[in-house]
Design a binder for these strands. Sequence first.
DNA 1: TGCCGAATGTCAGTAGCTGACATAATGTTC
DNA 2: GAACATTATGTCAGCTACTGACATTCGGCA
Lengths: 229, 229
Amino acid sequence: MALPLTPSRTGQPASDCRVLGLRERKKQRTRDSLVAAAHALFLRQGYARTTVDEIAASVDVSQRTFFRYFANKEEVALAVLADAEDYFVDCLRRRPAAETPLQAMRASITQAWQVLSRDEGSGPGGVQAALELIDLIESTPVLLAAHLRRTIEQEGVVTAILAEREGLDPATDVRPRVLAAAFGAVVRVSHLSWTADTAAHAAGPDGMIAIIERHLDQLGPALAGPWRN
Amino acid sequence: MALPLTPSRTGQPASDCRVLGLRERKKQRTRDSLVAAAHALFLRQGYARTTVDEIAASVDVSQRTFFRYFANKEEVALAVLADAEDYFVDCLRRRPAAETPLQAMRASITQAWQVLSRDEGSGPGGVQAALELIDLIESTPVLLAAHLRRTIEQEGVVTAILAEREGLDPATDVRPRVLAAAFGAVVRVSHLSWTADTAAHAAGPDGMIAIIERHLDQLGPALAGPWRN
DNA sequence: TGCCGAATGTCAGTAGCTGACATAATGTTC
DNA sequence: GAACATTATGTCAGCTACTGACATTCGGCA
């Protein structure tokens, strides 16, 4: 139950379950159940064809309670991925100062995917679920829109981390923001390529890492001079 | 009424109004009125506090008719901006083959903003409206999400243009997709900076162009080696 | 003038989402 | 452990975005 590497997004500090009261544990369980139920329903019958009432009913809570845990239907779908993104941010925070900003970002993603795939396998918030979610998102316009918005919110956090790391004021120097945005964009198109690539698809997290690295490698060349020889 | 440089998104070929039948002209007028009315209402009382019924009523059509013109409430808000983006794509298509891909993209944006600001001023689909829309979008999460999705759809088109331009297969060579994504990201953060920058704000389209160029200039440095001297 | 097809209006219904209030479960204090 | 405060949950009523079905009206055309 304890997920020390992916702090849940309920605002709890990462402490042991047993020190939490019954109330908190029950809430956590309800939340996890809702995410799992929603995930299963979305994958089986599609996002649009799944109603909030169904999700709530399958966990035996009222629709109103669902909306007290998640602001909207999209949020429950993106919850797993959101945890993974939070973990990426944690990785970035801990990167050694000697690394170049781009190096730190790059190392953080591969590290995040590797650790997540090692520690959680196919658990409720695991890598398996995250990868399935990416497919679902990429094929569901409404979800894609919500996901993109979430992503650029994260970019704000990343911008702040980079700026602090390098001792810069993000209002003056645009490099932190530009790097965060460009990097996020490359990761996004990597997801896109991954969903279309059945081989990488089968390779799981490792395939994803490979694709992301290939795209990052092409970022420089894509911006540089003429492409033709 | 004729907007030769920003073909409307109704699927009409860009021909003179007078050769169109009464029916087509009426449809165009209704559409334009809906966009203008929605725009005015959104700016006055906010996006969320404006209902579709209000918009429809202020143009004297039924709510059902509104939804025959626009798939959803977001679409009417993004219509003006969508036209501008289409024009950017047109510019890109016409860029000389001698230019570097990045040069072509860069020239296309500045060209798009300049031409739009010269030719349409403050018309219903003009630059004035587009700039106001950017502020609205940036401060309205739902709109921002929809806008981001639209943007990455455009990125698909841009990717195709770049690939054809350079004679590449976008499935093999990731550079077109990567450049389109990174460029789009930089333009987006430029919009963000623009909304926060009152001076550039006051300068209108020229201020926007200046900000975009500043951000593009920093793309290389942001990716390169250590930032500290 | 009269016919055809397209645009519009009307109506009923579904689903996402919210506020208000009552109820029940939990935590706390003496 | 009894009384109280806090908090999660359920219920209900209501709003708004959006859709399908059908009737009506309007523009185009013979």
